[in-house]
Write a protein that binds this DNA or RNA. Structure first.
Lengths: 366, 366
DNA sequence: CCAGTGCATGTTTACGTAAACATTACGAGC
DNA sequence: GCTCGTAATGTTTACGTAAACATGCACTGG
């Protein structure tokens, strides 16, 4: 590249006009520093075999030209993008968001970027489309945050060589899965209420097509049955506070109901409002336990006892899992299967002994 | 690439063992289809000048080999990545999340992917670091979702040719900014309370280092002053429900306070709890207005009157703005400046006329 | 004093794609 | 019948990087 040419136009200007130049290349840096581009490459990657003096010269040239490695060329050469893809439905649920955030943070620490692949409408076609677009996406591996049942038929179109880890799902036999210990959390919630002396516990469940909702409901049922209690009819919501409110209006009618386990905090919020409107006091008349421990849960009326999920840990494990798959080229020694992240029951003010209860084994509340 | 070679190892196997092959290249497809790789390229990009018959053959070969274009090579050749970068702090605020989601969706519709660039600790160094890492990131343009004052000194390290649009900030003179009409929203909230007959309106503000909080507070102050009312002392929170609760305990002491405008819904939630605990009824004793209209706001106790923000529109406009910058190579005709997205006051049950108020001009509440 | 050794640096090449240019083939027009 | 034009396809090359290989130079030891 000359410094000027015949038509009076400064060199490079025309190119910049045609297509904005991204920046200086290795060749430019090499030229300025008076070395070969290979030496620039070595400096750029921190490789040995370069004199300190040369290194300084090259770095000075880099600074002067504002050199930044071209990631496309680098990816092409190295065969990897240092980028993880995250497929997710709408970021409307708190859990997905927190998980995503943790994934992005963990990935950044490992030198990986995160590309978001939103699936607008959760239909099978959309999911398949996302998986197939993946093949031409600049991504080394994929983490799927998807709680509903659409993963099955999508397997086929997975491009080869792209590893997958799934958060918040089952399918542990076909994919590596990282998930909150839904069963343990739900069991803790129900046992807490039973220990306080409640005869039984109602359940305000999440939508039918959600794996998480399904497992929380199953665990609720099992725990009650194992304790020799008869499970009341299951009440279903759709995760939203509004659905919790509607369900709550019905639950308030049940005079024998003294304890409710809501499958998430938003529905618990709606439930609290319905109970309040109907004059059922919480926790004096009815105890309520939520799930998730969203930041606002401590400010509900009353502050909500709930099952805390460790989303950052879920995200971290997803990244760890997927990177370990990338890094060992051969068979994955951990194999498929599910990694469970434990939950923690956070006691606040929405649970108490039933008025007429005997309270055997109940922990005193502060 | 032959079908077998001398040592009995099937061709390609050794390569796959050394480094997992990403997939077939154009050359492989071309070989199978019996055409040149250029023809494959034409088919791949939907260019004219290919017989239907040839096109069919090529597509068949693509299917058979599971061919996916290599995006690194494509990006290198074309000089663009078809990817937008989004720089953001922790995704803990609902607004950022909703905006991000809208950005991802809009970008996807335009054929662009979105890469997340989380900035862990919001220090100047971190922001500068994020901007500088950007240069080697596979990104054509950047959208910054950042409400605090750290953008100023970061300008220098912006790599050339990378366009920026900023959401939720000011700096409209140096960057293109898309933002919610904070001033209009706050004014509507305050006027609504004044119209109901309240003498004045207290303000529960967000943190000092937030542009949005600052502008909402300014608009609150201006609106009161313009209406000839004396603004009460400003109460400050940090966006969290917990801080709203603490502030609410203090506000509950003010016997002359009949109306509060909270700078977001989370703080309003904490405020509601504090007022309830102190026996101040909402809306009979004190009216409360929030800001954001988070989904749960309709399920608060009582359902919250609040200022609705159109986050999807903000995200859409960010993408539109940044893509228009990319697409017109020369000067941006829209120039820098700020695009405001209007808000909408959503009336629910947390506001009413003051008990002793005259209520002139007040709209009747349902 | 010269082969040998090791280190700093340069040269060649390939990664996969697509623009630019080159080459065919086939039919229309004179 | 021969040229010209056009459409279909092939060949060359460049994008920026980094691995593999090549060179050259200084110092070491016999």
């Amino acid at each position: 590249m000359g410094t000027a040419d015949g038509d009076g136009t400064p060199a490079g200007t025309r190119r910049r006009a045609a297509r904005p130049r991204r920046g200086a290349s290795m060749a430019d840096v090499a030229h300025l520093a008076g070395v070969s581009s290979q030496t620039v490459s070595r400096v750029s990657n921190g490789f040995p075999g370069v004199t300190d003096e040369t290194r300084q010269q090259v770095m000075a040239a880099m600074r002067e030209l504002g050199y930044r490695p071209n990631s496309a060329a680098r990816a092409l050469k190295r065969g990897e993008f240092r980028t993880l893809g995250v497929i997710t439905f709408s970021l409307s649920t708190m859990g997905n968001i927190r998980t995503l955030e943790a994934i992005a943070t963990s990935a950044a620490q490992q030198g990986y970027a995160v590309t978001l692949l939103p699936v607008a409408v959760p239909t099978q076609d959309e999911v398949n489309g996302a998986f197939s677009r993946l093949g031409e996406l600049a991504v080394d591996a994929v983490i799927v945050i998807m709680e509903i049942h659409l993963l099955d038929a999508a397997t086929v179109s997975l491009p080869p060589g792209v590893q997958v880890v799934v958060a918040d799902s089952d399918a542990g036999d076909r994919y590596t899965v990282v998930d909150t210990d839904q069963v343990g959390g739900a069991r803790d919630a129900v046992r807490h209420l039973l220990n306080l002396g409640h005869d039984t516990v109602w359940h305000l469940a999440g939508p039918e097509d959600s794996f998480a909702a399904q497992r929380r409901a199953n665990a609720w049922h099992t725990t009650l049955t194992e304790a020799g209690r008869r499970p009341p009819p299951l009440v279903r919501g759709d995760w939203s506070a509004e659905s919790g409110y509607r369900a709550g209006l019905r639950i308030a009618e049940q005079q024998d109901c003294t304890a409710v386990f809501a499958a998430n905090d938003q529905m618990a919020l709606g439930l609290l409002r319905a109970l309040h409107e109907r004059g059922r006091r919480v926790p004096e008349d009815i105890s309520v336990v939520g799930f998730d421990d969203i930041p606002e849960a401590a400010s509900f009326l009353p502050p909500l006892t709930t099952v805390h999920q460790d989303f950052p840990e879920v995200g971290r494990l997803c990244v760890e899992g997927v990177l370990s798959k990338i890094r060992r080229p051969g068979q994955d020694p951990t194999g498929h299967g599910t990694t469970l992240v434990p939950t923690r029951l956070v006691l606040r003010d929405s649970t108490a002994r039933p008025r007429g209860g005997d309270g055997q084994g109940a922990r005193p509340r502060s």
